[in-house]
Design a protein around this nucleic acid. Structure first.
Lengths: 181, 181
DNA sequence: CCTATAAGTCAACGAGCGTTGACATTCATA
DNA sequence: TATGAATGTCAACGCTCGTTGACTTATAGG
């Protein structure tokens, strides 16, 4: 492994955390570089700038083999991953990445594009049927909304319940979403 | 009406648009002041700074009498308002305000507090029952998620359908949310 | 060992930001 | 009309940001 690759890796990891916790605009390259114990200038060298680093971070966040594995139920995969999100803190969540950055005009387009290509489109191919797009949209809406209420807004009734109860709520809403017709 | 009040009003309106379209961090006071045709320095004078302006903007966004009117079904009010959000562009949406700013560490606390006091708590009083908090959380999750998918992510199946169809989807999800037990 | 290339360091840049205080203008009231 | 408060204008401040280029150090191949 070339020496530059471990530097790239350290930056990528620190950036994932920062972009997920603060969002693109509030995360500064200087803070990311400091967390990675790496010089700021190397971001521009290895990723071409802040936006390049963000794109690389996105690619790795949306690399999600379990949900694309055809032997798995993608909805149950989503429930298990996002219900237990707080227990596996080291890996960055695609959903959290969306919640924290979809709003940002500066990176919204990039995010939408990768989301579409890496997740929506492959899932849509598996679902088939004339209502696939609608069901998938409602599924995403439910997962995003739940994540927002539990992780970000921390509303009583969803944020203060144990993981198993949250998983049930999420499963229930997802089922409702994909049964819409 | 004192002259300062119309200045305050102009700033408030421009700020509402900016905070809703760009989010707190990406909206600059200079841009807001320019849109309001007012000097930047007056923001600090009249609102005490950027955060003060944001708070004032929030207060007005969360001033939402229809949903608190006890003769209305709050859930149907939400459907009607947020299904037709794009047709009444002049008034800023509380939901949009949440979607665009809840993630921001700098203002998240303020937003959560006002959301709790102005919307969640009053609604909770009306709903009663042991599951009120849970139902309300799931309701908020669904509305936020749907708004995100339709307005921000613009996913096929939810963003490219007419308002009436979107209203049906939203109504369906809301009903599912409040029927959870 | 020598040397060319890779990798890392450092300081500076220009720009944008929120905020401040001194000053000018307007306006209501006595 | 005179006066003091209210309102508006302007320039500057200190700060952080992303990015750049020149420079030093480490490393691998001949």
């Amino acid at each position: 492994m070339r020496k530059a690759d471990v530097t790239r890796e350290k930056l990528l990891e620190a950036a994932s955390v920062a972009f997920c916790e603060l969002g693109y605009s509030n995360a500064s390259l200087r803070a990311i570089a400091k967390a990675a114990a790496v010089d700021v200038a190397l971001v521009s060298r290895y990723f071409g700038g802040k936006l390049g680093l963000f794109k690389a971070t996105l690619e790795s966040a949306f690399d999600w083999p379990e949900i694309l594995d055809e032997t798995n139920d993608p909805f149950e995969v989503a429930v298990e991953k996002y219900a237990h999100i707080e227990t596996e803190a080291q890996h960055v969540s695609a959903i959290q990445m969306i919640v924290m950055n979809a709003h940002d005009p500066e990176v919204g387009d990039v995010l939408r594009e990768i989301l579409q290509d890496q997740l929506i489109h492959p899932l849509q191919l598996r679902m088939q049927g004339p209502d696939a797009a609608r069901q998938l949209s409602m599924f995403v809406a439910v997962v995003l909304g739940a994540s927002m209420v539990r992780q970000t807004l921390k509303l009583t009734g969803m944020a203060d319940v144990p993981e198993t109860e949250y998983a049930n709520q999420l499963r229930y809403l997802i089922n409702a979403a994909i049964e819409y017709s």
